[in-house]
């Protein structure tokens, strides 16, 4: 197992480097004009633009640039932002933001996981009865109405009826986090509910459950001791991944409530061609993503001993 873990970690590092290289090269596919703001394109002559690009090392072949990028990376130098916060080191720009996103994300993950799994189990328990239909109605409603509309409604109701602050504020973190967390949880809860129900129902139909019932096991024991444990295995796969990716923040929620987090950073950086930020964010997301997938696989084997990740003892 340990050997496998080491192997996987090494593979993960390779994956991350691969991802970063691909993004780096992809960004270099764009014409060099994208490095300049609209104003600079107007004001600078071609020669000036050429000189500035040469000075910043942006005219060399992509592979030379790549090599230099890795050199800097080895020295833990991620560069400075050109547009988002002109001249500020990338680590500083990202630093404050991801804590904010992570906090909101983890709170809503905890809430939605708990509510979602519990309600999914209840739905499976009362399958085809009233409770199941109510649950389905909720899931469907949340997914049918476009998220921006849902958020607008939450904002209007929250601000007018409950007098909650309309915008996230650093000076009033607790109260102003309520509406964003509610929005984030609404959709995730529905997701967890849906899939928990699906996996539970699939398990409930299995023969060993029929046997357990025949043996006289109480409904509750059947549900939680047997069904949930088995149904949880596919869910567990995604848990570490989701947890780590809360750092990434939610684009829509953060935009809507003006949360100063990571969510909007990537799209802003891309639309303003702030390549150093884009690369740093991609490194961050890639590392977290790969790590999360790996942890998810490990978690899956821990819960269900029948799953084997290594090929020991099998024919193919």
């Amino acid at each position: 197992m340990l050997l496998y873990t080491m192997k996987r970690l090494l593979q993960s590092i390779v994956t991350v480097l691969l991802v970063v290289t691909i993004v780096f090269l992809l960004l270099r596919l764009l014409p060099t004009d994208y490095y300049f703001t609209e104003e600079q394109l107007i004001k600078l002559t071609d020669q000036q633009r050429h000189d500035q690009l040469a000075a910043a090392g942006l005219l060399d072949s992509p592979f030379v640039q790549l090599f230099r990028f890795y050199e800097d990376l080895a020295n833990l130098d991620l560069g400075t932002s050109r547009r988002i916060q002109h001249g500020v080191p990338v680590t500083q720009v990202i630093g404050g933001k991801f804590l904010v996103s992570m906090r909101l994300g983890l709170i809503s993950l905890a809430i939605s996981l708990f509510l979602g799994v519990v309600m999914g189990v209840l739905q499976a328990r009362y399958k085809d009865k009233f409770g199941d239909h109510v649950g389905t109605a909720y899931t469907v409603f949340v997914n049918a109405v476009p998220t921006l509309i849902t958020y607008s409604l939450v904002l209007v109701i929250g601000a007018r009826l409950f007098k909650l602050p309309s915008m996230y504020s650093v000076r009033n973190v607790a109260r102003s986090s309520i509406l964003p967390v509610v929005c984030l949880s609404l959709t995730s809860t529905a997701g967890y509910m849906l899939w928990t129900r699906r996996y539970m129902v699939d398990e409930l139909n299995k023969d060993y459950i029929k046997l357990a019932r025949l043996k006289g096991l109480s409904s509750r024991k059947v549900m939680y001791r047997h069904v949930l444990r088995n149904a949880f295995v596919p869910l567990a796969q995604y848990l570490p991944y989701s947890m780590l990716l809360t750092i990434g923040g939610s684009l829509l929620v953060e935009r809507f409530f003006s949360v100063p987090g990571m969510g909007t950073l990537l799209t802003d950086a891309i639309s303003r061609y702030d390549t150093s930020i884009v690369q740093a964010v991609v490194i961050l997301y890639a590392s977290l993503g790969v790590l999360g997938v790996f942890l998810g696989d490990v978690l899956m084997t821990l819960i269900d001993p029948r799953i084997r990740l290594t090929s020991k003892g099998n024919t193919r």
């Binding site: 916060q85 002109h86 001249g87 500020v88 915008m167 996230y168 003006s258 100063p260």
Partner: peptide, 28 residues
């Protein structure tokens, strides 16, 4: 010069009617 390029609200010097005492990017 490098520091000036990256000057922020808390390192800037003011001589106008207001100073910026709080700044949270994309928030307020």
């Amino acid at each position: 010069a490098e520091g000036m390029k990256a000057v922020s609200y808390d390192t800037l010097w003011y001589n106008g009617p207001y100073t910026m005492t709080t700044y949270v990017q994309n928030n307020e």
